[in-house]
Design a protein around this nucleic acid. Structure first.
Lengths: 252, 252
DNA sequence: AAAAGATTCCCATTAAATGAGAATTTTGTA
DNA sequence: TACAAAATTCTCATTTAATGGGAATCTTTT
């Protein structure tokens, strides 16, 4: 195993399977000599990416919290979320969640969220949790904003199997892109409606989506215009904020 | 440059200096060939630890949010914070912040926090932000819980220069350990009082502290007993929760 | 104090990282 | 669209580090 994967494959174990591993288990799981695993783990511990606990077990280390803290201060989307999402759910005037999401490999990840205090409808989108890219208004808005070639790559990797589905999804995405809005119902989470707006900044290379997620029972055509207008205006605010933050960064 | 440092040194740049770097800047800063830096950065981008933005710049990538999400679900201390800190600040009945902190290399890091809705007094302790280990009730409670040998190591690295200071600090820490409580005023943040309780779990190898931080003007002897009793009881709750969570983890 | 378990050390072998420059791709601009 | 400049990748000979097996050491438990 070569390069960064040597470390990343170990770290991924702690996310995807169990949160606690012994060096011997790692060696069994990944294949390779115990002494090699011990050496590699020791390096990760020294850097704070892992830490040793009891009974020869290791878990993820505090360095990730430091990097996350750094991103909270510097990442354009993460910062935008901290600034705009709270007020967005308030303005929505209905029990809901707001989600700011982006592409993460072949999946979509929420990078910021907010919930009205009385929210009951769960959403699978949680900050930092990778989600499939084909389902939900949130994901489709991101897909719609993608350059055609990248979208085709994604389809090749995780997309619809048969050509008809692929064709119809492509059509759907074109419409979403044209309107700037994506709406789905119960596609990812049963009983939930999602409304999403594209959030893009060409010059910053950002392609994201801003969503409101609420219970189907709380949603009807009467509140649709307000929610859509809120999404559109807040998406614009976020785009502008990122643009300004970027300019301020260049010559402060 | 060898081993994980090859990657870690690059990642650290994004925390400690600027949040955005070009490959060429990295090569200048760390020394080494551009082609090497490009290759290494490419690996980090592939793993989501960095991402490329515009104008040949790179920034921290979304993988950190995924690892942070994983820790939120699995790390004993982080989970404890999410469960107990909100109610703690409510019960305090005074404008304040609650901080759960731990050792991070030669520094102390807050891993969870909560603030009463009306909080005005700032604290330097922020989730994921490394802080010096010699100042504040929060840090001293952690120091006090450390095994003697580890404490001496720390003192050698960042501790008081002259022997008298070192001696008196050691005495202070012994008292803190005996009482289970550390109280300081204005040591780290001007105008703030900190009250901290040790949070330990021998069998889990955890040594942390739970603190309440409030404005000096809001603090007097009349509320001290309530705050201390709250801290002590919540510290105990957290220790028990971690113990139980650990047991549940072993045979669920 | 002994035993079992965990971790580090050692070192010959194998494999990967490095750097310089050329080649290619991407981006910005006319 | 084409050109120029910048960014990134590629190539390959050389240098350096990773690997694995087993012995040695350190830790924990009994």
């Amino acid at each position: 195993m070569a390069g960064f994967d040597r470390y990343d494959n170990i770290l991924k174990l702690f996310i995807h399977q169990r949160s606690s591993w012994t060096a011997i288990d790692i060696a069994h799981e990944l294949g390779g000599a115990q002494s090699t695993v011990y050496r590699t783990v020791r390096e990760l511990v020294a850097a704070g990416f892992l830490e040793s606990t009891i009974e020869a077990h290791y878990r993820l280390g505090p360095a990730f919290l430091e990097f996350e803290y750094s991103m909270r201060a510097s990442d354009p989307l993460v910062r935008s979320g901290a600034i705009f999402l709270e007020t967005l759910v308030e303005q929505a005037g209905v029990s809901c969640s707001a989600v700011l999401a982006r592409l993460y490999g072949n999946r979509v990840m929420c990078v910021a969220d907010a919930h009205s205090s009385d929210v009951t409808q769960e959403t699978s989108f949680k900050r930092g949790r990778p989600m499939p890219i084909l389902l939900s208004a949130t994901s489709k808005a991101i897909l719609a904003g993608l350059p055609g070639r990248r979208r085709e790559q994604l389809f090749d990797a995780v997309g619809p199997e048969n050509p008809e589905e692929r064709q119809s999804l492509t059509e759907e995405l074109k419409n979403i892109k044209k309107r700037g809005i994506s709406i789905t119902s119960g596609e990812l989470d049963k009983g939930a409606v999602g409304l999403a707006s594209l959030v893009r900044n060409q010059s910053l290379g950002i392609n994201a989506s801003l969503s409101l997620i609420l219970a189907t029972k709380d949603y009807d055509e009467s509140i649709k215009p307000r929610l859509l207008s809120l999404l559109t205006s807040n998406a614009k605010l976020i785009e502008n904020f990122m643009e300004d933050a970027h300019k301020g960064m260049l010559q402060p």
